[in-house]
């Protein structure tokens, strides 16, 4: 947490007005001791073309982009990496498609070879219809990868207890789903996300289920440190425009969280004073 979350938004003059733009203002995301200027992580899955990817990445302001490994004939696309390199983003390989700890650990090792990074988004899927994480395999894989020196960002359910177990294992970030991958259903259990945020000391990244900008803002308002999304942007009618919407939503949600919202009340509380009310 920054000491004065508003400080980055103030103008040079002491006590000056607040200014927009978290990224310019310096409220960075820190994971495993490394800082990122943006609190939006972007997945590349579902992107219709490289030109769209380029524009969406730039509009999103992201500094961390996920990629996958697949058989070379089926999907070789050196041009995609060239685009991402030009955008200046860091690559975060994932273990998408893995269903067991063994597969995920091997995939992470292969990703380390291919990308030259020991950072990995650990994903171990337990059900083909919902693509929900398999908690048992996930925890097993996380333990193995942490022991091998990987920096593990674990895609998980919104279960605060599992989140804590992953953090205790040494994961660098815990990434709970809002709802199933690609569903666009938003955050189905905000209470669980807030509880998970309280349960761990590592960064919490809301990952999966985001459909539109208000979902991303809600994630940040609930206390998440960042949001990871792919389909919401790549499959939007206008990905570049949605990427900008997500960037602004994440920034707005972060500001609202650090601003301290008013409590919810059952009844109204007048904002205009009663004193001096004339008798008419």
């Amino acid at each position: 947490m920054v000491k004065d979350p508003l400080a980055p938004h103030r103008s040079q003059a002491r006590g000056g007005p607040l200014q927009g733009g978290l990224q310019e203002a310096g409220d960075p995301l820190t994971i495993a001791g490394e800082t990122f200027p943006s609190r939006l992580l972007l997945g590349t899955g579902g992107v219709p073309s490289l030109e769209v990817l380029d524009r969406a990445v730039r509009a999103s302001g992201t500094a961390l982009v996920t990629v996958a490994l697949r058989r070379v004939e089926a999907s070789t696309n050196g041009a995609m990496l060239e685009v991402l390199d030009r955008c200046g983003v860091r690559l975060l390989p994932n273990t998408a498609g893995c269903r067991t700890a063994r597969e995920a650990v091997l995939t992470a090792r292969l990703a380390r070879e291919a990308f030259g990074t020991d950072w990995v988004k650990l994903e171990v899927i337990g059900d083909e219809h919902t693509l929900l994480p398999d908690a048992v395999e996930l925890l097993d894989a996380a333990e193995q990868l942490v022991a091998e020196g990987f920096t593990v960002l674990a895609y998980t359910t919104d279960d605060p207890v599992l989140g804590r177990r992953l953090a205790d294992t040494g994961c660098a970030a815990v990434m709970p789903l809002g709802s199933p991958i690609g569903s666009g259903l938003g955050i189905r259990n905000p209470h669980s996300i807030a509880l998970l945020r309280e349960a761990v000391d590592v960064p919490v990244v809301l990952d999966a289920g985001i459909g539109t900008a208000s979902d991303a803002a809600l994630a940040m308002e609930l206390g998440c440190d960042a949001v990871l999304l792919a389909s919401a942007v790549t499959r939007a009618r206008d990905p570049e425009r949605m990427a900008l919407a997500m960037r602004q939503a994440v920034e707005a949600g972060r500001l609202a969280r650090t601003a301290g919202r008013i409590p919810r009340r059952w009844h109204a509380e007048a904002s205009t004073p009663m004193a001096g009310l004339p008798e008419l």
Binding site: V47, R70, R71, A74, N94, A114
Partner: peptide, 10 residues
């Protein structure tokens, strides 16, 4: 043998 390369992915 599996020969793997980067591709787009969530």
């Amino acid at each position: 043998v599996e020969v793997l390369a980067p591709t787009a992915g969530g």
